[in-house]
Simulated assay, not measured.
Amino acid sequence: MQVFRGIPEQADQPSVLTIGNFDGVHRGHQALLSLLTEKARALGLPAAVLTFEPHPREYFSAAEAPARLSSLREKLILLAASGVERAYVCRFNADFAALSAENFIDGILVRGLAVRHLYIGDDFRFGARRRGDFAMLQSVGRVNGFGVESMATLDVAGERVSSSAVRAALAKGELAHAAELLGRPYSIAGRVAHGDKLGRQLGYPTANIQLKHRRPALSGVFAVSVEGLLAARTVQGVANIGTRPTVDGSGRPRLEVHLFDWQQECYGAHLRVHFLHKLRQEQRFESFDALTAQIRRDADDARAWHAAHTN
């Protein structure tokens, strides 16, 4: 998949396009992307996605913006896996927020991307003050020679599939529910960095996954599986994601994974951690002895869960 930062002044070829944030690339997104790629194949054109960085809600109110389900890198990986051939990452800033709906259509859809067919969600709005809507796109599309289709919201067991619904499930520790909405277990990917080696001192060495500035959508202690190591299989483990209140007063979230039966160093490796089952909430302990005893119980509980759920 080709990734473009920004929109070209003039398209090099026409495209079939969809627009959205695609946070988490859940089953609703996947259904939309399936329509996109099918249409692109039929027209012999590249399937393209226009997405935004940062998320518009982060731009307008960072403190109130929802936790991201996926980083930009993870989102692009998921889009590529869904058959998208071109991803245009548009910087959402003051200039873009002030862009009129008419200029969005003319400068981006018509000139910059030469759209021949456009798919949008049924609640899509665009342009300054959200003036642009489906009816406007259809009207302009007839004049400029591109078709427009909207896709109704996908329901799973009577529930609307959305990034908000996934976040709510993760926040409550309902990982099976989140996986049903996503079409896969929820995961976080990142590079292993050096930490303070406290886990090693306590007898449970951990791989510390960089979260950078991302606020995670879940917290607590989990049974996990990890891929990306120098192994042909995923590796089972137990993970803590949170602020480590017993040992760290910074409040900065961290993801630490203890890998079962793994002796090799993995600093610098890019790992993907799949969250399979929540064991407990994160909590503060009065001593390192109490913390160590709980880590031992967590590891035993995670091993028992894996043993009961691994074919």
Score class of each variant (00 low, 15 high):
I108T: 07
I108F: 12
G127Q: 07
V143H: 09
F104I: 06
I120M: 01
I108G: 01
A152D: 07
G127D: 11
L109I: 13
F124H: 10
N144S: 11
A114D: 08
R129D: 15
G121F: 04
G147P: 03
F104K: 05
A152M: 11
G145C: 07
R129G: 11
V148T: 12
E102R: 05
A152P: 01
H117M: 03
V140C: 15
V140I: 14
G141A: 09
T153E: 02
H117C: 04
L137M: 05
R111S: 15
D122E: 13
G147W: 00
D133G: 10
L137K: 01
G147R: 00
A152Q: 07
D122I: 05
V110A: 10
I105T: 03
I120W: 00
G127W: 02
A114Y: 01
V148Q: 02
A101M: 08
H117V: 02
R131D: 13
I120T: 04
T153N: 05
N103Q: 12
F146S: 13
F104A: 09
H117A: 06
G121A: 08
H117D: 03
G112C: 14
G132M: 05
S139L: 10
S139T: 09
S139C: 12
R125M: 04
A101E: 10
R142N: 10
A101K: 04
R116L: 12
S150N: 06
L113E: 08
G145K: 00
A135T: 14
V148N: 03
F104W: 10
V115S: 08
G145V: 04
A101D: 14
G132E: 07
G121V: 01
G127N: 06
F126H: 11
F104H: 08
G145L: 02
G141H: 00
L118M: 07
A135C: 12
S150V: 11
I105V: 10
M136P: 14
L109A: 11
I120N: 00
A152E: 10
Q138P: 13
L137C: 08
Q138C: 15
L137E: 01
M151Y: 05
M151W: 05
L109C: 12
G127K: 06
R129V: 14
I105L: 04
D133V: 02
A101T: 07
L118W: 06
D122F: 08
Y119A: 01
D122R: 02
R142D: 06
G145S: 05
G112Q: 11
G147T: 02
S139N: 11
